[in-house]
Nucleic acid binder design. Structure first.
Lengths: 208, 208
DNA sequence: ACAAAATTTGACTCTCAAGTCAAGAGTTGA
DNA sequence: TCAACTCTTGACTTGAGAGTCAAATTTTGT
């Protein structure tokens, strides 16, 4: 126990600095992955956006997959946070709130992370360790929707065959939205997003 | 006009043979692409499945993208044909038939082409010529669903906010289904597919 | 049987991106 | 100031997969 560890840990300040740097990298990577998808983004791209060279990234992350999962986690956190904020400022019945949540989710997907589909819904084979983290991430994200759906079921406002299935379908449609809303002129986009929200509310048997 | 063409065309039999060979290649390629996705399949894989070498494929197709789009077209044809057959043997209201169609589509996706999502729904940048063909393909496929939905609307059985949006959402969910139904033990799979069909029928405001 | 045409081969080039690493530049703390 | 540590660089290796092509093999028509 009392054995002296041969290496001394870096000072706290240095560690904080390192943490910050890592966050910068993760943010840049998350943006790129969200815009273009994991496979389409090379580490050189990420490095370029940060004005450094690829080698630096390997000083912080031991592989692209490791950077990838960590970045996706950052992206997921950011996304979930925005949805939570929305819920905080939205009043009303479960139906009202679910509609708002769907609307916000699609808006984020369309505007900021059009390639999110490829990140979260894909059967891509990650190294198993990192698979777990991504799964958790999706669960946390899912939980927001699930909670509302269950609330609406309890209150009798909603009707569903299977909560799981409804959530899967909802997610699939929402994540897919960028590929058809993205092409629209921005004038039509708002309307398209509204229609998606209205349409998906039908999954819990609420009509517009 | 009467100018003699310097090259003689191959005999009809030879041409038929060539056509057959091309179909063999396209079928093998379509299967692989449907199973694993375009990017994950190399021409060596395709060649291997056919017990030839990559070079042969270039004798028939000038690039991977060309083979790719042609193969996807084959896959789409096959898929559409199966759906049409199903409709031929299914009687009932538009609601009954739409449910059957959804069920069949998901079944095909789950069993045969789990990676179809990556082929049809992806914003991947194909060379523009080939983009058009893929778009047409989707339209034809879409038309089956659209016709039924419109029939149901006319008869007053269905209600929707936007036909387009309903169809997009439906497709997104159906194509996504393999990623969550695929993992299930085959016993549970049938039930899962049923639930997807029931759930998606809600999009046209028909409950189970 | 045989020449011409169709097909297949396998070795080749090219490119791109992942990953490595020794050497250099910048920072820290005594 | 200076030694130790942290970070960055850029040149390097490696591997995979697209695409090329002359030569070999097989098929065809006469």
């Amino acid at each position: 126990m009392g054995a002296v560890n041969g290496v001394k840990p870096p000072s706290e300040r240095v560690q904080r600095k390192r943490g910050k740097r890592i966050q910068e990298i993760l943010t840049a990577a998350a943006e790129l992955f969200g815009e273009r998808g994991y496979d389409a983004v090379s580490l050189e791209h990420v490095a370029e956006r940060l004005d450094v060279t690829k080698g630096s990234l390997y000083y912080y992350f031991s592989s692209k997959d490791e950077l990838g999962t960590a970045a996706i986690e950052t992206l997921g956190d950011e996304w979930t946070a925005r949805l939570e904020q929305l819920l905080d400022r939205t009043e009303g019945t479960p139906g009202d709130r679910l509609r708002a949540l769907i609307h916000e989710h699609v808006t984020i997907a369309v505007n900021d992370y059009p390639a999110a589909l490829r990140l979260f819904l894909m059967p891509r084979e990650w190294p198993s360790a990192q698979r777990e983290r991504i799964k958790e991430l999706r669960l946390r994200h899912d939980a927001l929707f699930r909670a509302l759906v269950e609330e609406g079921l309890t209150s009798g406002e909603f009707t569903v065959t299977s909560v799981d299935t409804v959530l899967q379908c909802m997610h699939a449609a929402m994540s897919q939205a960028p590929t058809w809303c993205g092409e629209l002129p921005s004038a039509a986009r708002g309307k398209a997003v509204d229609e998606v929200a209205d349409t998906l509310m039908a999954l819990v048997h609420i009509g517009p």
